[in-house]
């Protein structure tokens, strides 16, 4: 927005919240940060971050189509992301970066085609080309009261389901074979989690834009995984990091001319970088027995 800072922080905060759109941006950002960090923590544990990225990219044509048809973009994001999650869940394949050459070509083609379709809908809806930047890279303006309610209505059941399946999901993510032997429906739990991931990706897209979801969905969770491997502490830490990134990003986007996409990615990347350096130093000093390695932990995690 580029309002510029005064010398009085209390006045600045008051000024920022005197704009209803900023109040809504903070409400939406807070809901999204909680859900993205929680789901993201499990996603990083299961090495499914590229599935999350693909789902967010699939949300872009949804949002663009919704705009073209005159519907709120939120419905487009949710519809396409959840549908994409069901498709991925139905495919008996890896979707991670370590997928085979063929599978990564399929994912790459699907992502590029989804983006192309989004571009088609944007150009069919004449005069919306400037709004495309907001869909791709996020915006702090234009979140309506209804959209905040829709976000809340999707986030609460999403968290409820996650709490309900949390324990078997954790078990199935860490050791799928043992979990299966103990009677955990690993495949069904995984599919259900992908749907939750679709909801989280759709919500995150509305804050950071479709292309920058890593900033909220992956980076805070990965930062937490670097610092602790205890689930409860890790999830709480991820939520704190995501809230910080969102609130700092939205505040900086309000007071400078630079957009939220840049600030949120920068804040969360700085956090991830600091945690990685801290982890490397701690490992070198050999004083940390509770090492967490999110990339190598889920040996058998499939999506």
């Amino acid at each position: 927005m580029g309002s510029g800072l005064s010398w009085d922080p209390a006045y600045d905060v008051q000024l920022m919240f005197s704009y209803p759109f900023m109040v809504n941006a903070f409400r939406a950002g807070t809901i999204v940060a909680v859900i993205a960090a929680t789901i993201g923590w499990f996603m990083v544990l299961r090495a499914q971050s590229f599935a999350g990225h693909t789902l967010a990219v699939v949300g872009f044509p949804g949002a663009a189509a919704a705009t073209w048809l005159g519907v709120a973009t939120g419905y487009g994001y949710f519809g396409f992301c959840v549908a994409g999650a069901l498709v991925i869940a139905a495919l008996p394949q890896h979707t991670g970066r370590n997928a085979s050459a063929e599978q990564s070509a399929v994912i790459g083609t699907v992502q590029a085609f989804a983006l192309a379709c989004g571009y088609l809908f944007v150009s069919l809806y004449k005069g919306f080309l400037s709004g495309m930047t907001n869909l791709l890279f996020g915006t702090i303006v234009g979140v309506t009261n209804t959209e905040v309610l829709v976000l809340l209505a999707s986030a609460v059941p999403c968290l409820g389901v996650l709490i309900a399946i949390g324990r078997p999901l954790l078990f199935a993510s860490i050791d799928p074979d043992l979990a299966r032997a103990r009677g955990v429906p690993v495949r069904a739990v995984g599919a259900l989690f992908l749907v939750l991931l679709g909801v989280a990706a759709a919500g995150t897209s509305q804050v950071t834009g479709s292309l920058l979801v890593f900033a909220l969905l992956v980076a805070p969770a990965a930062t937490a995984h670097k610092l602790t491997s205890r689930p409860s502490v890790g999830i709480a830490a991820a939520i704190v990091f995501a809230l910080l990134a969102t609130w700092i990003g939205e505040t900086l986007a309000f007071f400078t001319v630079y957009p939220i996409g840049f600030w949120v990615t920068t804040v969360s990347f700085a956090g991830y970088l600091s945690a990685s350096i801290w982890r490397a130093l701690a490992d070198r000093a050999g004083r940390s027995p509770r090492v967490s390695a999110p990339a190598s932990a889920p040996a058998g995690a499939r999506s």
């Binding site: 971050s49 990225h53 970066r97 292309l211 920058l212 900033a215 992956v218 990347f269 991830y272 999110p294």
Partner: peptide, 13 residues
């Protein structure tokens, strides 16, 4: 993939 994704997401930012 987490590190690579986070780095390139920041590059895009």
């Amino acid at each position: 993939d987490v590190t690579i994704g986070t780095v390139f997401s920041w590059v895009l930012g």
